[in-house]
Amino acid sequence: MSPTRLSGDELTLAERLVEALNLQDLKPNEMSPTGALFGSHEDGLGLDSIDALEIALMVHQHYGVDLRADDEADIAAFASIRTLTQHVLAKRAG
């Protein structure tokens, strides 16, 4: 997988993220697949815990997957678009 380019599935998730979180500045196809979602605005998207709730909701609505904040694997998936996409698709399939 390319470190800089989003796969098709990752782009789809990125588009849904931008819509769900009201991130008007961002063009989904220019987002980094491996950049941090949380934390600073320079290094990542600067998201906070209210955003985490919106992400979980978006994942439920679009992928039918329920994320749990007390599940270590679910929480680790929030690191980047790539990890979130992989985790959500795996849960949907499994």
């Binding site: 985490a52 709730l53 979980a56 909701l57 439920h60 329920d66 994320l67 749990r68 904040a69 007390d70």
Partner: peptide, 12 residues
């Protein structure tokens, strides 16, 4: 004991 965040956590 918990402080649930996501809807699935609250339900559980």
């Amino acid at each position: 004991d918990s402080r649930p965040l996501f809807p699935a956590d609250i339900a559980a």
